[in-house]
């Protein structure tokens, strides 16, 4: 099934994307309303939560260019030393820019 990208077709495509995305924003919370939050479930969702971040970032580092790796490495080191997010992020971005400028 295809939709022509006429004006009304595009509106329909945007509507479809909106509904699909909304379903992802609502679906997890809605499903959880049927689950009893036991300590085990709580433990699952807590480790899952920070694992989301790792699962986004690690493939980014493996697949990225030298700039991307430098950004993540510098962010990680700065964060572990200073424990302040904003300087860490700024340092990481500067590292990406510098590596890409130099190489």
């Amino acid at each position: 099934m295809t939709i022509e990208t006429t004006t009304s077709g595009i509106l329909l495509l945007i509507a479809i994307m909106t509904v699909v995305t909304l379903a992802t924003r609502y679906g997890g919370v809605f499903a959880m309303s049927f689950v009893r939050i036991s300590p085990r479930v709580e433990s699952f969702i807590n480790t899952m939560a920070s694992s989301v971040l790792i699962a986004i970032v690690v493939p980014m580092a493996f697949d990225g260019d030298a700039g991307a790796r430098a950004a993540l490495l510098v962010t990680a080191v700065t964060m572990l030393v200073l424990r302040k997010p904003l300087p860490s992020i700024a340092a990481g971005i500067a590292a990406a820019a510098a590596v890409r400028y130099l190489f």
Partner: peptide
């Protein structure tokens, strides 16, 4: 635009929202 591939891609990329929402439950 093919509709089913569009739905599949948008859902796959945004499926992390399912877990994110659940973690805030």
């Amino acid at each position: 635009v093919s509709v089913l591939p569009l739905i599949a891609v948008v859902f796959a990329i945004n499926s992390r929202h399912l877990l994110m929402g659940a973690s805030l439950y």
